[in-house]
Design a protein around this nucleic acid. Structure first.
Lengths: 133, 133
DNA sequence: CCGTATCCCTGTCGATACTG
DNA sequence: CAGTATCGACAGGGATACGG
């Protein structure tokens, strides 16, 4: 890259270097519709399948199954099945999963802090750009 | 919600409460394929359209236009057009955009730290679950 | 209770060609 | 150089019904 670093921010020389840092990697994992919600719910403690289902409005059985399985596959959660009748399955975060929950929580903090600012910016933009499309 | 909070983690009583915190809001903004890459590139300093295009491999003109415009609309970036010939357009992050870049960088840090761990977990899982689907 | 299978709809994005 | 317009592919995910 031959561009000049004009007006660079202080932390620009950080871990991201010049190229794509790991940012797309995470988003490819957690950027889907349900993963973060399941992670956040599990960050509160052990949960059964049905508890997750009720705690996360709108999720279907299918998507909850797929989401929990991917979390287990990636070592972010673990599954414990008790061979009772009726069956009982519990999920809990691994240490890695808890560290992800913490990182995600920071992003959620940003969201709540700047929700209003973005809302206003959008209102301004839409007022100045009447061509809705 | 009538679920009992068994084995709750220490930080569970935090800003997320019992419900969806702002986490889906952010991901609905930045969870797309290109936004974070543009933000990260702009976090290094002012960039022209063409510079962004070259710095972000694989992005099309169309997607770069759409992405930058949404950033401007949400007050995360600003656009400066110089009526020269040929045209020249510069983009830069607003303070709000820079704060987003910082939050995103933290998530990227998590990604790089745990990339290997997830890779291994997945290898283990795939070994124990020969039924590929 | 927990998980699977099937069908289909929708949004997101890529490719391409064209304007000021 | 920067942006627009059109078309089509493809994956994510919703609805539903079924199985252990």
């Amino acid at each position: 890259m031959s561009v000049a670093h004009t007006q660079v921010t202080p932390q620009a020389g950080g871990p991201c270097g010049d190229d794509d840092c790991g940012i797309r990697e995470v988003l490819d994992r957690i950027g889907d519709k349900w993963t973060v919600l399941v992670v956040m719910e599990l960050s509160k403690g052990v949960r059964r399948f049905r508890e997750l289902h009720r705690a996360i409005p709108g999720i279907s059985q299918r998507m909850l199954t797929l989401t929990t399985r991917r979390l287990c596959r990636d070592g972010l959660a673990e599954r414990t099945a008790y061979p009772t009748i009726p069956p009982q399955v519990e999920y809990h975060l691994t240490p890695m999963g808890r560290s992800l929950a913490e990182a995600v929580r920071q992003l959620a903090d940003w969201s709540r802090e700047h929700k209003d600012g973005m809302q206003e910016a959008r209102a301004r933009w839409d007022a100045e750009h009447p061509d809705e499309g």
